[in-house]
Write a protein that binds this DNA or RNA. Structure first.
Length: 885
RNA sequence: GGGCGGUUAGCUCAGUGGUUAGAGCGCCUGUUUUACACACAGGAGGUCAGAGGUUCAAGUCCUCUACCGCCCACCA
């Protein structure tokens, strides 16, 4: 039977097949085994606002790598998928969809609107789940969750009620950020500050008797809401004016001049207009001085009746008109250009208004204290470490969290107001009557909760909390929370707070923060921004494995990732290389056959070498994975397969196949490929499964091999031994071969012809005397990879070139034979001069120093330490010898 | 204003005190070679931002400077 495999890997043909196979086999669903510690990852739930973008592909890939790796290590592994209802985002999308049909949110009414939103969300969820599968995410679909489904919703209500009962959730009239377009309150985090090239307006407020005081403001239109002018009590310029009054222009309202430390003497004129209802600093000043609040805006940021003739104007139009009027009245002293930072809605980029409003808040300070402790004490590890500081800074300065949103889409706040007694009923389940007076005239709070409130519970709500489920007991706390650093505050920090609060335990042991994928202009890719690249396109062109590999390699934790076409291509090429490597090995099995009792006994130097390199790789990869350095691990596997296995071992193997005296390299070819596939499987699951299955078909060990590479054990370092001697010899061989190739290139002559010509050169004849000897040695170390692509070329010819490079020829044996004896013999038998020998000796010393590079992975690595110490000793020794000479 | 990151080949980026600082892409030369041209072989290309310091040894650790980027922050 001959094996026919296409020359080029076609990913589209197998990806779907294997995902369905794994899914059907139930590999994604862990078995609860109380004897074993589980590995648990809860997927950051994507928003149901659209399809997945590259950022999700990155998250999926990194988590899948961890999860597949741990699963292969034999741990009961749960990766729980889910989606997030994404409050504002979904509502905005739904509104836009309705608008296209000429419908409006208010026209439809709450119930109908929600129906439309649900339709969209369900469709979106389906698409998202499908895409996770395309990417190869080995998550447990039997446990899939959606934030708005009954169980997570119940967890949300329970958490709210518990916090309320503990006094950690309260309702208050506070200064909040208001988006005039979304018509809802926003938390501080949902506000993005942008530098605006604005102006500083100097406005004269006439004093009640005579003269005026000039205030500087960026928002002249808010003066309608002024209830005082504040100056610093220490400011000599204004000391006499404190307690006096000014008359607001246009509306002729009298307000006092007060003294407050908050005023910066050096800024503007040193006099600050106080607009308590529209500025948070002013609000605080007003609270200290018991000033009244005057609201001058409608919710949509048009001016209200308190602005007299300007009522109904949009805020910026009003500004222009107010400025014109003040100028007209001679009250505008000057306008200076002024760059300042202004808050914008992170969803719709509308300038937010600070606004006094009744909202629900979480009292975060006590929660944060515990959350800080968890990281400080090391119960939770953050990778990379530098985010610790950022986390602490935020947590230590945390402010109360505004959690109510004036939206329809989301978890309705579980609070009912009594029409009769005015008291609140706060309950997990809808009450039939007021718990205080028994009245049935109760109405639920119309608002919903911030999406991040439900997200904050995600680690435990997905596992069944508040019920005491098997899942919760076994899988909680989870192992790793893997997500982008951009939602450290939004999500990670809040999960730690809420996890600790609700369960008394940390929600996860490790936080792994990846970087952000950016577009050409360096902007963050995000939904609703329109600069999102669909990963499906990349998958279509290059295959999932290539995309996953491109996302993983060449990046490090916490650093932003740039995904170029080049990287995708090279990853695709690597997949194809792997494909063809396997193709060659399978064809070799077919052509040469393999004995059923063939054994892995490394008798030749190249077998010992590849075995050693593989062992080294396995050891390093395991350590790197342990240390969350997936990019580096993938890179090392790539380098091994391409540069060592393919470029050298396989090329040597080809010679071996054609030699009668050498053992078949097949056992080592198969062993190396099979282990490489397993090492690579977490990174590129599809192609490795496909190749592994083919290999299994043809392997003498097929009976012992499991049904899928997914459940095969991950290679561990104990598999084979590292063999420094073999490595050293092969390094020398490689060096020789390189020098030969250089020589060839130098002469720019085709090998055969060049040798033919040189052979008859009289100068060469003396060297030919010991050529035979060299040939024997060459045979011993098998450096004949050089012949790989010159099969018709006699080995003799290649070896001749070695002769020309006598120094290089002698050196390689330093590590494997008695060096001194070798030298002596050469001294006697060849024409080497004394001077030449000295040179060789020096080079030899160097050679010993320059043996194989120590492994890049350190710590834990005693071997390396020993090597270093050894080197150090030699170095000192040599230095002392030099100085004594 | 505070904090964090970055600065390494033409480009995009790895690099965990230790050999001659690497990869991918691009560029140059050569190769149709029965695994792979999505390949093979060879090559050019680096004052590792700058200046000091610690060390037997610094791209890597310390200090300062410059530039780029990000995050946080109520100076109107």
């Amino acid at each position: 039977m001959s094996i026919t495999i296409p020359k080029v890997y076609e990913p589209g043909k197998i990806e779907r097949k294997w995902y369905q196979f794994w899914h059907k086999q139930g590999y994604f669903t862990p078995k609860i085994d109380p004897e074993r510690k589980p590995f648990v990852v809860i997927m950051p739930p994507p928003n149901v606002t659209g399809e997945l973008h590259l950022g999700h592909a990155l998250t999926d890939t990194l988590e899948d790598i961890m999860v597949r790796w741990h699963r292969m290590k034999g741990e009961p592994t749960l990766w729980l998928p889910g989606t997030d209802h994404a409050g504002i985002a979904t509502q905005v999308v739904t509104e836009q969809k309705l608008a296209k049909q000429g419908l409006s949110k208010n026209g439809l009414g709450r119930e109908e609107f929600l129906k439309t939103a649900w339709e969209w969300a369900n469709k979106s969820r389906e698409a998202i789940n499908h895409q996770h599968q395309v990417i190869g995410a080995s998550c447990d679909w039997t446990r899939e969750r959606f934030t708005l489904h009954e169980k997570p919703s119940r967890a949300v209500r329970t958490a709210f009620v518990r916090l309320y009962n503990k006094g950690l959730v309260y309702r208050g009239e506070r200064m909040i950020n208001w988006c005039p377009r979304c018509l809802t309150a926003l938390s501080d985090l949902e506000v993005t500050h942008k530098d605006i090239a604005g102006h500083l307006y100097y406005i004269r407020y006439p004093l009640d008797n005579q003269g005026f005081i000039t205030v500087a403001t960026t928002r002249p239109e808010t003066f309608f809401g002024d209830t005082a002018v504040a100056v610093n009590p220490e400011d000599e310029r204004y000391k006499d004016l404190i307690g006096k009054h000014v008359i607001l222009p246009i509306i002729n309202k009298e307000i006092p001049i007060i003294a407050d430390d908050a005023v910066d003497v050096s800024f503007g004129t040193g006099a600050l207009k106080i607009t308590p209802a529209h500025d948070s600093t002013d609000f605080e000043v007003a609270e200290r001085h018991n000033l009244p609040l005057v609201n001058i805006m409608n919710p949509d940021a048009t001016m209200n009746e308190n602005t007299g003739p300007y009522a109904g104007l949009e805020r910026f139009v009003c500004r222009e008109e107010v400025v014109a009027e003040l100028k007209h009245e001679g009250l505008l002293e000057k306008i200076e250009p002024y760059a300042h930072s202004v808050g914008h809605c992170s969803r719709c980029q509308t300038m937010v208004e600070p606004k006094i409003s009744w909202q629900w808040f979480v009292r975060t300070e006590p929660l944060a204290a515990e959350a800080i402790k968890a990281v400080e004490e090391g119960s939770i590890t953050v990778i990379p470490e530098r985010f610790n500081k950022i986390y602490f800074d935020w947590m230590e300065n945390i402010k109360d969290w505004c959690i109510s949103r004036q939206l329809w889409w989301g978890h309705r706040i579980p609070v009912w107001y009594c029409h009769d007694c005015g008291e609140l009923t706060v309950a997990v389940d809808e009450p039939s009557h007021c718990l205080h007076c028994g009245s049935k005239q109760i109405v639920q709070d119309p608002d919903v909760l911030d999406t991040w409130f439900s997200s904050a519970l995600w680690t435990h709500s997905t596992l069944g909390w508040p019920e005491d489920t098997d899942d919760l007991r076994y899988f909680y706390p989870t192992s790793v929370m893997e997500t982008g650093y951009d939602i450290l505050f939004f999500w990670v920090a809040r999960m730690i707070m809420m996890g600790l609060e609700d369960t008394g335990e940390i929600p996860f042991h490790t936080v792994y923060l990846h970087g952000l994928l950016r577009d050409e202009s360096g902007d963050k890719m995000s939904k609703l921004k329109g600069n999102v690249i669909n990963p499906l396109q990349a998958i279509e062109e290059y295959g999932v494995d290539a995309l996953r590999f491109a996302l993983t390699t060449g990046s490090s934790p916490g650093n932003d990732i740039n995904l170029g076409e080049g990287k995708l291509k090279s990853s695709r090429n690597f997949v194809n290389k792997l494909w063809n490597t396997s193709r060659f090995i399978l064809q070799s099995i077919d052509a040469h056959g393999i004995a059923d009792d063939s054994q892995l006994i490394a008798s030749t130097i190249e077998d010992r070498w590849i075995n050693s390199q593989l062992s080294r790789l396995i050891r390093d990869v395991n350590w790197l994975m342990e240390d969350f350095q997936f990019g580096e691990a993938a890179q090392q596997i790539y380098d091994f397969i391409w540069s060592e296995f393919c470029d050298w071992y396989i090329e040597i193997a080809k010679i071996c196949f054609h030699s009668r005296s050498k053992p078949s390299p097949l056992p080592f070819l198969i062993n190396t490929l099979e282990k490489s596939l397993r090492l690579l499987h977490p990174f590129m699951p599809f192609v490795t499964e496909e190749l592994w299955q083919s290999l299994k078909e043809h392997s003498p060990d097929k009976v012992q091999m499991p049904d899928s590479i997914m459940i095969a054990p991950y290679p561990t370092a104990a598999d084979t031994a590292i063999d420094p001697e073999a490595e050293q010899v092969m390094n020398c061989v490689i060096e020789i071969v390189r020098s030969i190739r250089n020589a060839r290139a130098e002469h720019k002559v085709k090998m055969d012809k060049w040798i033919e010509a040189e052979i008859y050169n009289d100068e060469l004849l003396p060297h030919l005397i010991w050529q035979k000897d060299i040939m024997e040695k060459l045979a011993r170390v098998k450096p004949l990879a050089i012949l790989s692509r010159q099969r018709r070329n006699p080995a003799r010819g290649e070896a001749l070139i070695l002769v020309l490079k006598e120094a290089e020829v002698v050196l390689p044996w330093a590590g494997m034979v008695d060096v001194r004896a070798e030298h002596k013999r050469l001294t006697n038998e060849s024409e080497l001069t004394e001077a030449r020998i000295r040179t060789l000796e020096t080079r030899l010393k160097d050679e010993v120093f320059l043996s194989k590079a120590p492994p890049r992975v350190q710590e834990k690595d005693k071997e390396k330490l020993a090597m270093l110490q050894d080197k150090l000793r030699r170095l000192h020794l040599e230095l002392s010898q030099l100085s004594s000479e």
